[in-house]
Amino acid sequence: MAQAKLSADLQALQDRLGHAFADPRLLRRAVTHASMSGPGREDNQRLEFLGDRVLGLVMAEALLRADRKASEGQLAPRYNALVRKETCADVAREVGLGEALKLGRSEQMSGGRRKLALLGDAMEAVIAAVYLDAGFEVAQTLILRLWGDRIGSVEDDAKDAKTALQEWAQGRGLPPPVYAVIERTGPDHAPVFTIEAQLSTGEAAQATAPAKRQAEQAAAKALLDRLD
């Protein structure tokens, strides 16, 4: 009966998450942005606060298990790479969380379903909703499944890609890489940038993202992957 209370978009999200909520109100609240809150309708900010802590505990434990010899100095950047808003937003995009967000008109008009901060916050809120609905072990299983290979490859992701590319160039006596805006599309309130990272030797790689800094990081990582 609980499942019938979910709207079609929330039912689809629940299916993609792989967790059937005993209390569908938790999922509904997790996807409700503050711009849609009102009497009788709670937003996801308090859930976001809790979900951030649940995610942090799961990732800290996973990293300790994955590398029993790593020092705190090695673990900290790996942890930050796994729990940062960009990573949460990436996971949110993979499960189509943006399609289910409940947003006020102003946020809808400004491209809120694609905003990194809104997606990251909502992903944390969904984690909290699962935790409150079914407990820590179920939330832990969900997180580890959704984060997937990110945990195993986090050592490569922990270093800032632009910094890593600059160090690669300097180590070979080359000048720092240059970042060029190849294209800017979309409306002013929701632009999309295509950035090319270029080395003086001619190697280059492009990436597209809704934020210039994010596109630069992605382009730098793409070029590093190509060089490796």
Rank of each mutant, 00 (worst) to 15 (best):
T201S: 15
G73P: 13
L144N: 05
R68K: 08
D225G: 14
G40S: 11
R68V: 10
A12H: 05
L165D: 06
R84K: 15
D15N: 14
Q3R: 13
M123P: 04
G38I: 05
R28G: 01
Y179D: 08
D225I: 01
S71I: 15
A158G: 05
D157G: 05
A2F: 14
G135R: 02
R78V: 03
T185L: 13
T185S: 12
I151D: 06
L26K: 08
T194C: 04
E203T: 08
I182Q: 10
E124V: 00
P39Y: 08
T201Q: 07
L82Q: 06
T194K: 00
G98T: 07
R29Q: 15
R184D: 01
D225Q: 11
G96S: 12
H189E: 03
H33I: 06
D133S: 12
L144P: 05
G111C: 09
K212R: 15
G120N: 03
P39M: 04
L119C: 07
G120S: 04
L26C: 05
Y79V: 05
V154S: 07
L63A: 06
G96K: 07
L199N: 11
S106F: 00
A164V: 09
V130E: 12
V178N: 02
A180H: 11
M1N: 07
Y79H: 06
K102I: 01
L17V: 12
A209K: 13
L103E: 09
A204L: 13
A164W: 04
Y179W: 08
E155L: 09
L146I: 05
D52A: 15
A30L: 11
G73S: 02
T185M: 06
A128P: 00
P24S: 05
A161Q: 10
A89M: 13
G51R: 13
A215N: 12
R184P: 00
I151R: 09
D9C: 10
A129W: 06
R113F: 03
G111K: 01
K115E: 13
G96F: 03
G56W: 15
